[in-house]
């Protein structure tokens, strides 16, 4: 009779690097010096750790965002606003046709807690997953320190308009928000505001481009102004959007400065559908049935225009609404 026991030397070796193993449901996450390893019933999947952490950062900070957050062509999450599907291959044509996909549904708060713990544990000192690659260190190697300040930034959301009394404050050097190195030529002048007594909360203006030029994060929309559910979300984009965002509603892009190139794929299959090149002043819709990934060669200002109406995902997925915004 053999007394030998099977030893998972790979897992032991990873554990020796100092990172914790994180699990929820049937999913198990391990990291080594260069990669995240996702184990699930039926297989495992590997993602480079830099892209995994950058994607995880957005998923956590956005509360799973609108629709689908594809970390790559295989793994991702779908937000159902209260619950979240975490999947392998669900939106990958080859996985689906060969029935290799796997999906579990979690309460949003449970998955968020696991993701937050993993992000904290796996993000080393000196690496900021929200920063452009040229502005941060690398995430590789054995566990060393942490970067809690970088991973606990809150998404900035104006209730009515940034800078109004009681609303989001403006950014400034004094508040520790310097102008980004790529926006040193963005004018910082303030508008002239002459409000008569009693109208200070209504007669209001601010320098939106200056506000955005002081953002220290990339690919992370912040709400500047609202008209009911209409949200102007400004964001600074540099290098590559780490995720491929799958829409569950129509959203619009307004390119305020510079240029972004977008790859557009079918939301369910990942088949390429279009390329969209956006230069300053261009406006384009992102249909409700696509996924998109952006490339910004220079840091640019993009206004993502969202409709925050919570009934929309169901109305689009049921076919009540067409996936494109206008007909002509």
């Amino acid at each position: 009779m053999s007394t030998a026991t099977q030893v998972d030397t790979t897992t032991q070796a990873r554990a020796a690097l100092g990172y914790q193993i994180h699990s929820i449901g049937q999913f198990n996450f391990q990291r080594d010096e260069y990669f995240a390893h996702i184990k699930y019933p039926g297989g495992s999947h590997i993602i480079p750790i830099d892209n995994f952490l950058r994607s995880l950062m957005r998923d956590v900070a956005w509360g799973f965002f609108y629709g689908t957050v594809n970390f790559d062509t295989v793994f991702g999450t779908i937000n159902h606003y209260g619950t979240v599907d975490m999947f392998i291959g669900l939106l990958n044509e080859a996985y689906r046709t060969s029935n290799q996909h796997y999906v579990e549904t979690f309460d949003s708060k449970d998955l968020k807690r696991v993701f937050e713990g993993m992000l904290d544990d796996w993000t080393n000192e000196g690496f900021d997953p929200f920063a452009a690659p040229d502005e941060t260190g690398v995430p590789f190697g054995r566990k060393h320190g942490n970067n809690k300040r970088a991973i606990t930034r809150e998404r900035m959301v104006a209730k009515r308009m940034t800078g109004l009394p009681g609303d989001l404050p403006l950014r400034s050097d004094a508040a520790g928000q310097p102008i980004n190195r790529q926006f040193t030529d963005v004018p910082q002048d303030a508008p002239e505001v002459h409000a008569e007594p009693g109208f200070e909360k209504e007669v209001h203006a601010f320098n939106a481009f200056a506000y955005v030029s002081r953002s220290d994060v990339t690919w992370n929309p912040s709400v500047l102004s609202c008209v009911d559910d209409s949200q102007f979300c400004a964001t600074t984009e540099e290098h590559i959007l780490p995720i491929t965002h799958g829409n569950d509603r129509v959203e619009w892009f307004i390119q305020a400065t510079d240029e972004i190139i977008w790859d557009i794929e079918d939301g369910k299959t990942g088949r390429p559908r279009a390329k969209v090149v956006m230069k300053a002043g261009d406006v384009a819709a992102m249909p409700a049935d696509i996924r998109h990934r952006g490339y910004s060669p220079k840091r640019s200002i993009l206004i993502v225009w969202e409709n925050n109406d919570g009934s929309l995902p169901k109305r689009y997925s049921s076919g009540e609404l067409k996936p494109y915004p206008v007909e002509f």
Binding site: P272, M278, M286, P325
Partner: peptide
Amino acid sequence: EKGGVTIINDDPKNYAFSNI
């Protein structure tokens, strides 16, 4: 300058692309 939509398998009208 104006960018644009290059179609692979879609209809450019779906993107309602314009320049302000």
